[in-house]
Amino acid sequence: MIVDEAFLKSQIRTVPDWPKPGIQFRDVTTIFENPQAWRAVMDSLIHRYMNIEFDRIGALDARGFLMGSTLSYALNKPLILFRKKGKLPYHTVAQDYALEYGTATLEVHADTLQKGDKVILADDLIATGGTLLAASQLVSQLGGQTLEAASIMDLPDLGGSRKLKDAGIPVFSLCEFEGE
């Protein structure tokens, strides 16, 4: 069961010229505010992964936490949190990455994976792919394997899904928006 793409796209607010002129920001907070849309998104993702063998859900800061925790609960899988630098209290490994509008560092606890673990990464969108690519690099650094990067939406014109695929990371999104 996959959510109807037209319905899903109608539930995502577009904010013109934010955070800078010319950008059409796709705001998924409207999905979280609408129980019907949120259930459709999560049911679609749960159904996608319920019969796939994997070990952990990796959730990306911050909206990916909402998706990842729901998937973790529904699929009875451990949840890994990928956080912005300085937010995790224990020993971490870090990976720098490029954002649409700058650079940042992603961290994960150094003991969060077992060697050979297969991980599904969850984030709200794929834009430039920097955050998901950094998370996948951290998974590899800890001896794991990224099975797929899952998102609500893909912005393919920003090139992120292509970068992820070129790095050998399959991607799955419930809808796409053209342009920036």
Rank of each mutant, 00 (worst) to 15 (best):
Q145H: 12
L88V: 09
T146E: 04
P21F: 08
M153Y: 07
S140N: 13
K163M: 11
A127F: 07
S136I: 00
L147Q: 04
F32D: 02
D123I: 01
I12Y: 07
Y73F: 15
R39T: 14
F82M: 04
G144F: 07
D157W: 13
D27G: 05
H109I: 09
N76P: 02
W38I: 07
E107P: 10
R13C: 06
T146P: 03
S151W: 03
K165A: 11
L158G: 04
I169C: 00
N51T: 15
E33R: 13
F25S: 10
G22R: 11
L125C: 05
D111Y: 11
L133H: 07
L8I: 06
K118E: 12
P78G: 14
L66E: 00
T30H: 10
K115F: 06
L79W: 02
L155G: 01
S151F: 08
E5N: 07
V108P: 03
D27C: 10
L106F: 03
F65R: 05
K84G: 06
T14M: 13
T146A: 11
H91Q: 15
G130C: 02
R162D: 12
L125E: 01
K85V: 09
D4W: 05
P89W: 05
K20T: 13
T70D: 06
I120Q: 01
S140F: 02
G159Y: 09
E107Q: 15
S72D: 10
H91F: 12
D166F: 01
T128L: 07
F65E: 01
D61E: 15
K20F: 06
N51F: 14
R48D: 12
T128G: 10
L88I: 10
G143C: 10
S140T: 13
F32R: 05
A149V: 06
A122E: 09
D43S: 11
G22P: 02
L99T: 14
A134F: 02
V41D: 00
L8Y: 01
Q137E: 14
L113N: 01
A150D: 11
P19Q: 08
I23G: 04
L132Q: 12
A74D: 07
T105I: 15
S151T: 15
G144T: 03
A150F: 00
I46R: 10
L155E: 03
L132A: 15
S10K: 12
I46D: 08
F82G: 01
T131I: 02
W18R: 10
Y90F: 13
V119I: 13
P35L: 06
P19T: 04
P170S: 05
D17H: 14
Y73C: 11
R56P: 05
K85F: 12
E33M: 14
A6C: 03
H109D: 08
S136Y: 06
L113H: 07
T103F: 04
G160W: 00
W38V: 00
L158R: 02
S69H: 13
S69N: 12
D96L: 02
P16Q: 08
K9R: 14
D117Y: 05
S136V: 02
L133I: 06
H91P: 11
A149R: 00
A98K: 14
K77W: 09
T92C: 13
P170N: 03
P35F: 08
L125V: 05
F172R: 04
P78N: 08
R13S: 08
G129Y: 03
F177R: 08
P156L: 04
I169P: 01
T70S: 15
